[in-house]
Design a protein around this nucleic acid. Sequence first.
DNA 1: AATGAATGAGGCTTCATTCAT
DNA 2: GATGAATGAAGCCTCATTCAT
Lengths: 195, 195, 195, 195
Amino acid sequence: MDLKSKIAEAAERVLLANGLAKTTTKEIARAAGCSEGSLYNHFKSKEDLFLHVLRGQLKNLMGALSKLQGLAGQETVRANLERVAFAALEDFGASMPLICSVFSEPGILLRLREGFAQRNEGPHRANEAVEAYLEREKQLGRIGEGTDPRAIADLLLGSCFQHAFQTNFLGREESEEDRDRFAKRVLDPLFAALA
Amino acid sequence: MDLKSKIAEAAERVLLANGLAKTTTKEIARAAGCSEGSLYNHFKSKEDLFLHVLRGQLKNLMGALSKLQGLAGQETVRANLERVAFAALEDFGASMPLICSVFSEPGILLRLREGFAQRNEGPHRANEAVEAYLEREKQLGRIGEGTDPRAIADLLLGSCFQHAFQTNFLGREESEEDRDRFAKRVLDPLFAALA
Amino acid sequence: MDLKSKIAEAAERVLLANGLAKTTTKEIARAAGCSEGSLYNHFKSKEDLFLHVLRGQLKNLMGALSKLQGLAGQETVRANLERVAFAALEDFGASMPLICSVFSEPGILLRLREGFAQRNEGPHRANEAVEAYLEREKQLGRIGEGTDPRAIADLLLGSCFQHAFQTNFLGREESEEDRDRFAKRVLDPLFAALA
Amino acid sequence: MDLKSKIAEAAERVLLANGLAKTTTKEIARAAGCSEGSLYNHFKSKEDLFLHVLRGQLKNLMGALSKLQGLAGQETVRANLERVAFAALEDFGASMPLICSVFSEPGILLRLREGFAQRNEGPHRANEAVEAYLEREKQLGRIGEGTDPRAIADLLLGSCFQHAFQTNFLGREESEEDRDRFAKRVLDPLFAALA
DNA sequence: AATGAATGAGGCTTCATTCAT
DNA sequence: GATGAATGAAGCCTCATTCAT
């Protein structure tokens, strides 16, 4: 693997461990096994390196949900949404500390936004993906005529997002079963609405 | 108003404007109209001052929801929940940048958690408040026997939380009508489930 | 003496000894007997400190010549011009290394120029001072009708300037007698022209 | 042209544009169209490269004046000295920024001096050249018996040198006519003395 | 209690130089 | 000879904290 990737991965590790404010170039270099100067052969500044890592995190977040498109009509809607909820809990949970950190540095936040605007990206795309999936299922007749796909998507992902936030915020360890239980619990009333 | 409160308010203002990482003691002092030295006559350290401010933010966040207890049985459930959703959107939105910032400083996050554990506080209390309200309404027979109050609370507050997050993250200005529309949209399917 | 002056003097010493390129904030602080951080309590940046010192050097340079105005009509023209030449040799010699150094940093040079333009200052003012003096003497009839004060001023100060430059450049030590001899030597033909 | 010359010329270009302090090896390499490493295949160090360029500049400075020797007795003295003054203004003006820059790096200045001492070179040789020319004219009886060739040389070149310095220092653009006018103006009183 | 100059640790970044390819 | 990524020393500057007034 080339040094640039090694640096990016090291930065991600250090950022998740130490937080954005307490992450120094010196420590990134040590974690990457190179000199501090080398960071600047591959990234223009510390801020640029952080942006690179953050964009990676946000892409991961989308990765799981982008596969949703093909699932419409397959298996059961319930099974599909359970998978969605589960993936969201996992992905949100993993990237929450970093994504949230960005609020502490308005300069970085601004640059992220600019990038989003140009490429039509951003965290809201996750909700749009679920919405699109549900729209398809509606066309296929597998969920009720009267359902509002966007509202369902927002409720489902929103509850997962907040759950991931609180889990991180309170420092709670969470098992797969915990996640599964949460996913099923919020899906129950949602399915009452989808009928 | 005494200097301690003036400092705390100044700190809050500067934190919300500049982000946790870029907020310096010098700037807080200027905003409070006092000297840097004075900060240390009222707070042991910059971190302590930040904790003071952050705890205040989290209390605000609970403020609106704590009144919920008395609303059970009054007006309609729908009206009450609309009020809840609206307050959540507003409060989450206002404190989001600061609350999230905390992830950039694990040291501060840790101390916040310790305080929570001792006093049984934390952001999850908001969801518990809504859950408790719904439990009452269930006992009063105003919502269906089969509803899971916790799940409904998580869905409602979760979607509001994520919405507030995304609005902040994308830097979108949002009008009262925008908020109202969002609140109503997510409540519709929820009420289908509550019947 | 306050720390600001101590820092400025220390900076001047170090600049003259080490050259503009090799002068570090660390060494200035050591020479001033304070911490590096203290430099920044009194000057916004290293560049600003340098500008402060350079402007001082240029003022010294003018100081000796500004007294010329009152000399018109006093003693003999020859004696006055000898004094001028001598002062020029001394002042040019002392500030040459620093003044010239400025060419190595276009940024600083630019800022110096801007200041000059605003306050009608600059090294050319020295020549203007001598010119003004000679103009007076011409009006008093102590030098020939046909003389061109500006040309005489440029010849006199120019030769002193170049002499000081070369002495510094070649690293030659120069005694008072050396300077005196040079001054007299160039004044001889000049006086042949003034008759 | 071989790479060594290309590098030297690129270095000269960059030095004149950016100043000695702000000229980096990276930029020289880019200007020369080669890699940074190549610089070190042809020069032992950055300092050596700079010395190479500086010696070239000082040689240029002598170039025009070395032809003076043959001019004695030709045309008129006035015409010859006008040519000298004009060449001096031009050459001094072109190399002033670089030559002066050297004061910002005592290490380089020292090494330049050593070279001068060994080869009897240096900026004072220009004055000696004019002096020698005038000496010849004196022997030929084209200038007055009583004239001091060295003094005239110092006055003439000195005034041109200072003029070039100030023009550079103040950042003034200067036309050929400006130069011509200045040369003639200082030569007038000088010729009154040569009679 | 209020001040604000002084501190010094530590952060980010630049840059001349080396060396394996 | 040519390359250019890697180096690491060193530079400038920021900032929370202290302390004498």
